[in-house]
Structures are given as C-alpha cells and as structure tokens.
Design a protein around this nucleic acid. Structure first.
Lengths: 204, 204, 204, 204
DNA sequence: TATGAATGAGGGTTCATTCAT
DNA sequence: GATGAATGAACCCTCATTCAT
C-alpha cells in the first residue's frame, strides 16, 4: 500500500480542489449532464485524462462537490456559541451568518442541487447527510420551547419550514429571480421580522 | 391546411396525455437525462417511434410538462374570489387550497424541476412563466398593506419568501423528507399560524 | 390464383403509373435515398400504405422505373427502318430521333441513374438490360464497315464511345450545365458533324 | 488559437487520408447511403468514433472526397505546356495523359459521382468546381479556331461534347462494361482518331 | 381498396473512459 | 504524473413497412 508523503498529499489536494472548482463553475453554468468531462478539463486548464487521476468518474466529481455542500451544512453545529442569548437576537444573528455563507456557496448549490433532486441515489446520500443537522435543530428548538422562549409549535414542522424557506430562496436565486438576487442581504432581517413578529402584529 | 376532426383531435390529446403521464412518472423517478426515450415508451406501453408522432423530440416532452406546471401556477389568479374575507381567513383558505393542489402535482415537479434548475434555457422559460404570478401577488399584497390589513412589509420580499417557502417544502418532499411527506396536510395551518402570529407571540 | 379482369388490370396499371410518375418526379428532385415513401405518396396524392398495394417495397419502385428506362433503350431496335439510307443521313436521322426522345426521359434518368451507379445490384441489372442494344449496335456497325460505308474502326470501341457521349451529355444535363440544357436541339447535328467530318477537315 | 506542430499536422493528414481512402473504397463498392459509418471505420481499421475526430459528419467525408475530385479537374490547367505543338499531337498527348490519370481516380469517381448526381446541393457544388475548367477549355479552343488550327465549330458545344464523352466513358467503366474496362488504354488514340479524322474520311 | 397510426430495426453521433506515449 | 487520441457503448431519431379500421 503506497502512502503519500505530506507534500505529496498536498499536491493531490490542490489538484482535486482545482478540478472541483472548475467542475462547480461549469456544472452551475450548464448543468451536470450538459457538461462534458472535456469542458471541465478545459476550465481547469488540464487534459481530459488528468481528471481520472484524481477522480474515478464524472459521477465522483458530483459526489465530491456534494461532500463540500455537506461541510457547509455541518456548521449548523455552531448553535452552541449563540446559545446564551435571547431568541430574537439568536435568530437574527444566526440567519445573518447563514445567509452570508450561503451566498458564497451559491455556485456550489447551482452545480449540485439539480442533480441531487434528479438522481435517486444522490437524494438518499443527501438525506443521510442532512439528517443530523435536522436532528440537532429539532432538539435545539424543543429545548427553547420547553424553556418557554418559543411558543409550543411543532419542532419537526418548524425545522422543515425554516429549512424549506432557505432552500427555496436559494432556488429562486439560482432561477435568476432579480429581487432575491439584488436584495439578498435584506433577507435575514426580513425573515427574522416575519417569523418573530408575524403578519398579524399590525392588526392588533 | 390540415384540420383534425373533433374525435381525431381527441385521440391526439389522449395519446399526448398518455405519453406525458408516462414521461412525468419516469422523469420523476430517474431524472430527465438518465431516462431514455425507450423507457418512456415502455412506460406508456407504446413503441419508441410512436412518441415522435406526438412530440418532436425528447426535449419537447419536457417543455410540454413545463407547460402543465405553468397551468398550475396560473390558478394563482383565483385571488379574486377570496378577496372579500379577512386576511387571516384568506391566508388559511389560500394555503390550504394550494397545498392540496401541489400534492397532486408533486410528480410533475419532481420530473420537471431539476431540469429547469439545471438548464439555463429552461430557467429563462420558467422565469417568464412565473413572472405574472409574482406580479399579481405583489399587487395584491400592496393593496392589503395599503388597506391596513397587513403590516408595512416589503411586498416584493414577502412574495419571494412565501414562494420560496412553498417551493422549498416541495423540494424537501421530493428529496424524500419523511416529516414533510407524512404531515403535508398540517403544513398550511402551520404556515398560516407562523406567518400570522409569529414566534414572538408567546414571549409577550 | 386470382386473375384480374381487363378493367381491373387497367385500374391497377393506372395506379402503378400514377405512383411511378410521382416517384420519378421526387427521386429526380431529391435522390432516391433522401426521398421518403411518404413523400412519394404525398406527390401521388395517396396514402403511404397504398403504395404497398402496388409495389412490394421502395426498392421495387426503383426497379420498375429502371424497367421503363429499359423500354426506352429497346427502341434502338428501330435501326431496321433506317437501314437502307446512306451513313451520314442515317447518323443524322438516328441522333436527332434519340436526342428528342432522351429529353423527354430526362426526369426518369435523373431519378434512376444515380442509384444504378451506386448500387451493385442495379448495376448488374442495368448491364444485362443494355447488353442486347450494344450487341445490336456492334453488329450493325460491323456490317457497315464490311460494306465499306465506314472506315475500319473497332465496332466495340465505337459503340462505347457513342453511347458514352450520349450518356455523358445526359449526365451534364442532369448536373445542370446551362449550355447543354439550352442547346440540346443543336447537339445531334453537332455530333453528326464532329463524328463524320472530324476536326481535321479544316486543316486539309 | 491552437496551432499544430508540423509532425502533428502530418499525423492528422495521414489519418484523414487513411479514412478517406477507406471511405472511397466502401462508397465505391456499396454507394454512399448503403454504407454505414461503422463500415468505413472497419475498412480503415479504426473505431467508429475516431472518424468524428477528423470529420464532422458522414456528409463531410463525401465533401472531402469531392474536393479530391476537384483537384484532379484542376490539372486541366496544364494546357499551357502543350501549347506550342500542333493540334493533332496536342489532342493525342492530352487525351493520353488524362485517361491515364482518370483510371487511377476511377474508385474516387465511383464513390462520389452517384451522390453528386443525386443530391441537388452537391450538384451545385460540383458545377461551381467545374466551371473554371470549362471556361479555360472554351478559351483554348476559341484561340485555336481563331488561329485556323481547328474548323469553326462552336467552342461551347465542343467542350461539352468532349467532357461528356470522357465522363460517359468513366460512367460505362463504373457500370462494369467489360469492353471499356479491358481496353481503356486504347481509348485516347481511338478518340483522337475519331475526333480528328472523323467517320467520313473513308467514304471520300 | 384505401388509409395512416403504429411499429421497431437501424444508423449517425456523442462522450465517458482508457492507455500508449 | 500528464497528455489527448482512440475507443465503443449507448442514445435519439428516422422511416420503410405493417395492419386494424
């Protein structure tokens, strides 16, 4: 079994990153299936065959990108450091942080998401990847509801609705909606306001 | 100019519907690109070539399905008949109605949506199709805000957030989320509650 | 064994002629392979399937047309009636007659000839069909040479050169050469002059 | 702009020649349309897909072959070097030379010509390609007539008749006529004799 | 007899993957 | 390791032919 030296491993990682970066650009632009391996290679400035020294197949490119998406999701773990503050402030801070991140990952989403939606295998992989985050979110919400910081809404549904809203906004963004695109930074505050105060607040 | 008799046209419509139904099933299951025309034909119980008597290309199948999605969207026009009642009741009724519809169209979404997301051409087509609905929604919201029935939130953002939530829930459903799948009927009421009353209601 | 009555046979012959006429038009225009059976049917004003009541296959259409070409060739048999007159007058009369005929059959040639050239099977069929005419021409020439009416040129070569010239002019015509097309009627006299008097006549 | 090195370009040229050679063999044998790209590949000893690295389509194979035919035609320009000698000697030398060439190109003609005859687009392309040669020949003939070296025959018709004879002989050869095939070398002298001295020479 | 919708074999072409250099 | 020419399986689509009406 050949083991790579540190610098060797670094070179490999750099190459993989270079290829993945290229792949995510082209996939986001044209879609996974409409993109040829050759186009990825051209975008990365390397030869077709070189890609296969770093990834077993075109499909593996997608899986690697999906892995990167997963790593964005994991940051949800940082609930912890916001744990002490009050709910409203928490929501505000959390949304702001996530939306800033998401913007950077927009290309990655555009590259990976359509194919995840289309391919049963990837759907399963994605579900497995996201499950812990949902779990953590549900627990956190239940805790706060228990503590009387939130009204007794169903944590499962609330988690899904929150996730759906964020995902949906990313989708609208990818679809090219000009409002979402132009006013992305306003969204966290807007969401916090809507979710916390509600539309009924005025009537009262 | 060849004109089809009524029964002739009916036969054609039936065949097209039969083929589209089959296509939406297989596309939803495996994705557009992983599906061969032969598989659509098998699913429809006809020969490969027959499909080309009713659709010019595989791509045309997708466009026809996208057109059906569009026709779902158009129902948004039924704002009108709900126009007299109060905001809360309106929201409740409207969401309940849409969510019931959407469930039926889940397969259609699963078939068409990934490809819309992936293909720049379809993205544009979809955007054009959806624009009037967004327009109408914004106008309606602005009217109600004007009338003091809603707090002075930005109608553009509110429209996007609402749309994003619904789209996002559909996406989670397609991704196979068990909670969204099992509790779909609870979602309209849950959303109405969340959006109207907000999470802050308890704390007060 | 079903035997057709006379009028029945006539109807069949008319239909076959109608179809062959249409086929020769379209084949001449677009070539055999670029023409679909449907196009022949449309040109004949009948349904696709009807053609197969009168011809076993698309290929049979071609063979039937080749048969018609053959029947033009057979007229070469009318050497007989010109047999008494002197060589120069014979040549003149004969060429004039054939060129007039050929013009009428131009469409037929354009329809059939390219495919005869391209298909080994048809080449053989054509060769068999043309052989007797070559045979007859050689005999006639040999007779006249024997009789001192012609110089002692090789009858085999002379037959081929004469046939080649005529075929070649037809080919140029089909290729769209404007001179051949515009001055077709001048060709028999020109050829008779060239072949009989030769280019050296002036020098002498 | 990617530029190929000399040896690179040589490799490409060799491959293209190899493929064209194979294509001309199979097209000549079976005709363009009855030949599959796979058969060309097999004949060239390469894989199907390799052909598409060197030619954009099956049709391009034909066009490239037509281009080669064109290059044969261009040699007609060598009128010049024969220009000083007397007419009879010129005709003899010229015909001998061309017929020797033509024999080598028989396969090419058999491959390309039927399709040129059948396809309106190629007919036009061919006409354009041949036009300059006709032009040059007419001018040359007119010059010699002017100079009293030839009788005052119409140069346009004479050019067509001469071309038609040669083309026609090629056609008979392709059709498999045994006389033309066996006695090809006799033809130039025979033609020169016929055209120069004429059939009437004996009678006088 | 005539129709034309349906069939499905076949072919041109693409492109992920391999491998000799 | 890097290259990119070569491979050939797979797919969309056409169209000659069939057959129920």
């Amino acid at each position: 079994m050949r083991v790579h030296s540190v610098s060797e491993q670094e070179r490999i990682d750099r190459r993989r990153a270079q290829i993945l970066e290229a792949a995510s650009r082209v996939f986001a632009r044209k879609g996974f299936h409409r993109t040829t391996v050759r186009e990825v290679a051209r975008e990365a400035g390397i030869a077709d065959g070189t890609i296969y020294l770093y990834f077993a197949s075109k499909q593996e490119l997608l899986l690697a990108l999906l892995g990167q998406v997963g790593r964005v999701g994991e940051r949800r773990a940082d609930f912890a450091e916001l744990t002490g503050i009050d709910v409203r402030a928490f929501m505000d801070a959390y949304l702001r942080r996530r939306f800033a991140e998401l913007r950077e990952w927009r290309q990655l989403f555009a590259a990976v998401f359509p194919e995840v939606l289309a391919d049963p295998g990837l759907r399963a992989a994605q579900a497995a990847q996201a499950a812990p985050a949902f779990e953590a979110a549900e627990v956190e919400l239940a805790r706060r509801i228990e503590a009387g910081q939130l009204p007794p809404l169903d944590p499962g549904l609330l988690t899904r609705v929150a996730a759906a809203t964020v995902v949906g906004l990313l989708v609208l963004d990818v679809l090219g909606d000009p409002v979402v695109d132009a006013r992305w930074e306003e969204l966290p505050a807007f969401l916090a306001h809507l979710w916390f105060d509600g539309l009924g607040s005025e009537g009262r």
